[in-house]
Amino acid sequence: MNPAEANLVDLVQFFFMGIQRGCIYAMVAMGFNMIYNATGIINFAQGEFVVLGGLMMVSLTMALHLPIVLAFILTVLFVVVVGVLMERLTINPVKQPTVLRLIIITIAVSIITKGAAMMFWGKGSHYMNHFSSAEPLDFHGATILPQTLWIMGILLLVVAAYVFFFNFTMTGKCMRACSINRDAARLAGIDDRKMVMLSFALSAGIGAVAGIIITPVIQMDYTRGAMLGLKGFGAAVLGGLGNSTGAVAAGVLLGVLEALGAGYISSHYMDAIALVILLFVLFIRPSGIFGSSEAMRLKEF
């Protein structure tokens, strides 16, 4: 293999790694957007949904030996229940919400989730079987894990379900109406409280899916929530907060940039790369690369 070819193979390899992570960031970002659109809240516990999904799936498949599909469904249901409980017990009862108070409440929930996860699953990281073979596939010299294909496929399914839900179902349209103008939606007879609860349920569900599909490649432990949440938020901001198609593109882009940075600059600083991008976007263009600057002026940053 000549050096130019070797370089190309490296590039493709980094690219695959980036897409694998990027898909997860995309899903976390979609979770952020759902709650943000319904409530204007940034949920600091978003990353914990991913961790819970991953750890629950580990228990169900590795300890209880349930079939993957059944474990998948049960895990998502479990995390959805956690999301709904979070909304019912901590967001819904707050009568005089200030931004600071809501931020601290979601932080409190993330601390509790983290503490509970440590209690039940311990401090170690957990291994989980890949969905299919763990044997990498060869792609012109570069390798790709079958799990990465699973991740990409499931992201596509989630996006398809998302588009279908918000464009072709009544509930989805009601949720969109609520996010555009809550008062008007309420006047039209939509139960906005229920929509808020639903947004937490869906957001938790997406987080769970992300956790389930990534765990075979990264080995989940209870501390990962904060970083996953931050990078997912980075993707959400990069794509324009509230804009879910933007979030998917931005998530994948962020993952790829991170992998390229880790490959060509320094793998030690890999985690910092996505965060530096997040800060730059926040400072220079808080409406995101896909958001219009016109819309940006109307929003409060």
Binding site: I42, I103, A226, A272, L275, L278, L282, F283, F301
Partner: peptide, 17 residues
């Protein structure tokens, strides 16, 4: 120049870096 949630996330990101 950022407010509320954005400022919170920016500072959290900084701490992480």
């Amino acid at each position: 120049r950022l407010k509320g949630h954005y400022l919170a996330m920016a500072t959290l990101g900084f701490a992480s870096i």
